[in-house]
Design a protein around this nucleic acid. Structure first.
Length: 461
DNA sequence: AAAAAAT
């Protein structure tokens, strides 16, 4: 079905075409017509399915038709994180350019002055995180009585973050006569309850089973020792693969994010970082550097796990296995977006076995293990920690068939250490070499783990 | 256990 059949205005269709899209994604095709008919919607969709456009486009259409004087905001979009809110605002600008609609981005971490000014001038659309919106509301800077359209995006994340009471309070300040759209990747009972309470006869749209992972993402488990030195070494090896054009590396702790980014930079990688302890302008700046390809590696906490849409992320690394299996699905969803292929490596230290079990249970699939590289792939241990330790015999017992990444690593190991920068100098966002980069047995389950996980357990602090 | 979000 082409975009033209969804009932959007000609101006919007032009904007969509200019943005380079010709066919709607499944969620867009399913959601846009009923939204235009003013129905309430529950959208169950993973990120990366084109969800944002599925509400931004019809919202612009509705606002453009029912245009009154923009004294009071007429619609409100709630997002769990500041970056997501900013991203939706960008979408709104991209598609709404011809429509002279005004919007205000109400997020924390930046000065209130500009936001208040925009509100005083009058805007059509509010895009907000709950905290700042409540703050502005409490100060009397924003009136919600004209908001006849509400979008609650990433509802399950809002739940995780404890935003549900805020959402309820905000809902109570909106007019009862309104259209409400709720999007969520999963439907836990509290979200179902929220929907029952605030939505009217919603049409439920589901485009991907919750907790299902994208099939165009090749997933690997990478057994590692618990030591940070070991993990960083292994990470550098994997990053050196030529097909790694752009990568997001997730860590469980903000301190790990900082340390890892420092270490990567020391080793000549072009990396940046993002986590919740950074000042907001810096967070957005780092994200922007990554988007533009000025850095091709972004080390991140879970602030970046959900929803962030960055083109051409070829690889996701879980430097730490995530504690919650849901987060795994979201993290690896930063790659393989919009039909592209991607690769996700998850480091598994001995203590992570249970978390990995939970991930495999949730996704319903076993993830193949990428065995340790051959000794030749690890040129004389420069980092010290490993030197002098005898090579373990298990390395020789590996299956005979070669995996593509390892073969390349062997070829490139020596030059890489001399000129690590050379491989990371140019932004290669648009490289389309991933097809040839697929490991031969990608996706296959390698059989039972040969006790690998129990070898070399480091002492825990 | 961590991270996120208003200051």
């Amino acid at each position: 079905m082409p975009f033209a059949d969804l009932g959007l205005s000609d101006e919007l269709l032009r904007a969509v075409a200019e943005a380079g899209y010709s066919e709607p994604t499944p969620i867009q095709a399913a959601a846009i017509p009923p939204v235009l008919m003013m129905r309430d919607i529950i959208g169950i969709a993973q990120t990366g399915t084109g969800k944002t456009a599925s509400f931004v486009l019809p919202m612009i259409d509705i606002l453009a038709h029912g245009r009154t004087r923009a004294r009071m905001p007429r619609s409100l979009i709630l997002e769990p994180t500041r970056e997501l809110a900013a991203q939706v605002a960008e979408n709104f600008e991209k598609y709404g350019r011809q429509h002279k609609l005004s919007m205000a981005l109400l997020i924390g971490g930046v000065s209130m002055g500009d936001q208040v000014k925009a509100l005083e001038k009058g805007v059509d659309v509010l895009i907000a995180t709950p905290g700042r919106l409540m703050d502005l509301f409490g100060r009397g800077n924003v009136l919600l009585t004209g908001c006849s359209m509400l979008v609650i995006d990433e509802a399950d994340r809002m739940l995780d973050m404890g935003f549900i009471p805020d959402i309820e309070e905000i809902c109570s300040k909106l007019p009862k006569q309104r259209q409400t759209l709720l999007f969520s990747a999963t439907m836990p009972p509290p979200i179902k309850k929220l929907a029952d309470k605030f939505l009217d006869n919603p049409k439920q749209i589901e485009v991907a089973r919750p907790a299902s992972t994208n099939t165009n993402i090749t997933q690997w488990l990478v057994p590692v020792k618990a030591s940070a030195v070991d993990k960083r070494e292994r990470l550098r090896q994997l990053l050196a693969q030529p097909e790694v054009s752009s990568a997001v590396i997730f860590c469980n702790r903000k301190t790990t994010v900082r340390e890892l980014n420092k270490s990567l930079k020391r080793h000549g990688f072009r990396s940046g970082e993002i986590h919740g302890d950074m000042e907001q302008p810096q967070r957005l700046a780092e994200l922007d550097l990554f988007r533009r390809g000025e850095v091709n590696i972004l080390v991140a906490s879970d602030v970046a796990a959900r929803g962030l849409d960055i083109k051409g992320v070829s690889h996701v690394f879980n430097f730490d296995a995530p504690w919650h299996p849901d987060d795994y699905v979201h993290r690896i969803g930063r790659t393989g977006r919009a039909g592209a292929t991607g690769t996700a490596y998850t480091f598994v230290a001995p203590d992570d076995a249970e978390n990995v079990d939970n991930i495999e249970k949730l996704t319903g699939q076993k993830i193949a293990r990428l065995e340790a590289p051959a000794p030749t792939a690890v040129p004389a241990a420069a980092d010290g920690e490993e030197s002098g330790r005898p090579r373990r015999a298990r390395r020789d017992r590996r299956p005979v068939e070669e995996r593509a990444p390892r073969a390349r690593r062997e070829e490139r190991a020596a030059p890489r250490r001399e000129t690590p920068r050379a491989e990371y100098r140019e932004p290669r966002r648009d490289d389309v070499r991933r097809d040839e980069a697929e490991p031969a047995d990608a996706g296959g389950w390698n059989g039972p783990v040969p006790d690998f996980l129990n070898v070399g357990i480091a002492a825990r602090p």
